[in-house]
């Protein structure tokens, strides 16, 4: 990034982060749609400190997923602000998926792993021009 050598900001450096954020954004949106439709793939959870209606979780997934998708596109500009927002959003998605894990564990596990990778990719440029 900026404090490195005078190398120009590599388009490929944030390409991985962009691709991953667009991907996790789409996945979050589909996760949200399935939850808003109150599907049977979500298990019924009894007493739970963070219990919310499945539809409510769905709207949260949908809204955050849309923001992640937009940030993924914003990353194409190489903006440092987009990176910072990306880290915050990916962290938020991670925590949301941790909290609603009892409803659909597999999806949440996948989303947690993917968003960890998103955060990593936001801190590490990859590709030929990134050291």
């Amino acid at each position: 990034m900026a404090q490195h050598s005078p190398r120009p900001a590599a388009a490929l450096g944030t390409g991985l982060a962009s691709a991953l954020m667009i991907l996790t954004g789409v996945l979050g949106i589909t996760q949200g749609i399935a939850a808003i439709a109150n599907d049977d793939v979500y298990s019924v959870v009894g007493k739970y400190a963070f219990k919310l209606d499945v539809s409510t979780w769905g709207w949260i997934h949908l809204a955050v997923g849309a923001l992640v998708l937009l940030t993924g596109f914003a990353l194409f500009t190489g903006s440092i602000l987009a990176r910072a927002i990306g880290v915050l959003l990916a962290g938020a998605v991670l925590i949301v998926n941790f909290l609603d894990l009892p409803y659909e564990p597999y999806w949440s596990v996948i989303m947690i792993a993917l968003n960890l990778f998103v955060i990593w990719s936001l801190f590490h440029d990859v590709g030929p021009d990134a050291a």
Binding site: L20, G127, P128
Partner: peptide
């Protein structure tokens, strides 16, 4: 995900 990482991590 491993494929996507590899696709972005190779020299152009």
């Amino acid at each position: 995900v491993f494929v996507i990482w590899a696709l972005f991590s190779v020299p152009d």
